[in-house]
Amino acid sequence: MSGRLVSRLIIAAAIVVAAVLPIILPSWATLTTLILAKGIVVLGIIILLQAGQVSFGHAMFFGVGAYTIAFWGRYVGPGDLLLFLLLGPLIAMAFGLLIGLFVVRYREIFFGMLNLAFSMVMWSLLEKLYAFTNGADGIRVARPTLAGIAFTPEAFQYVLLYLTLGLVLVVSYGVQRYLDSPLGHMLRAIKGNETRLEYLGVSARKILLIGYVISAFLGGLGGVLVATAQQIATPEFAYWTKSGEFVFIAILGGIANAAGAFAGAAVFETVRFFASAQLANAWQLILGVVLIVIIMFAPNGLIGLRNRRKAQAEVRP
């Protein structure tokens, strides 16, 4: 069996598990939705990592997505999820463009810290503008309709799950296409040799900005989905620990391709879910150990384990 076929089978199996498991175990429906939605955000982190850049503030776009739907509910009225899924990512993209124009001028630690700074400004505004945002209490998000249809809470968690799963497939396909395209390869070329890229007549800043805006879009999309699933948007969505979590998941899963985002999110959320139930406040400890093990023994992440086996198989005569 070829390595490619095995990879596809693993991905197909993962999709089936994500689709079927929550039917058998209803308590997993929302957890699976959260895993998938966060995976979408992590895809955005993976895009930036292709260029060798780590954003420690990407939760701000996650927050923009979440508060788009929260503000809509508070100031406009009931809305439809399809509208939110369009509006949230687009507004996040607009923020991404604006902030991106500044941050793409910097690299590495400066890029990471400048992103952090912007996200802290956003977090502070969400905290302090109490009259508009309810501060740390956040804004409750009412269950939206989907294409005009209202669902019961039980039905809605499955509707949201399958909608999210569908979006994951579309978005992963799109991101993989992007990474294989000229723009995606130029993004990787920024990490490889920015000077040469400029000497090919390409503006590295422009290439990075395109990647940044796409990654903001993904952050916004994840934010809408998570706020809908948890029925609340709080400043925590944009806090730096949330940004760190996304980077953590990306490293855990592996940055070589889109699948890493979801593998990482699945392990992260599952460990957190069970460890926080069984071991109260020790879940960070467990995740910390998991990450240390990953960095030491599988520096290319969970997906890298699979790729390494493939590489070994290819070497064999």
Binding site: R177, P182, G184, H185, V202
Partner: peptide, 20 residues
């Protein structure tokens, strides 16, 4: 891929969907 990046840059093929 190195060479195709150069060729794409020269041709202005800045697509996000076509395979390099």
């Amino acid at each position: 891929e190195n060479m195709m990046i150069a060729a794409a840059a020269h041709a202005g093929s800045m697509s996000a969907f076509r395979h390099l």
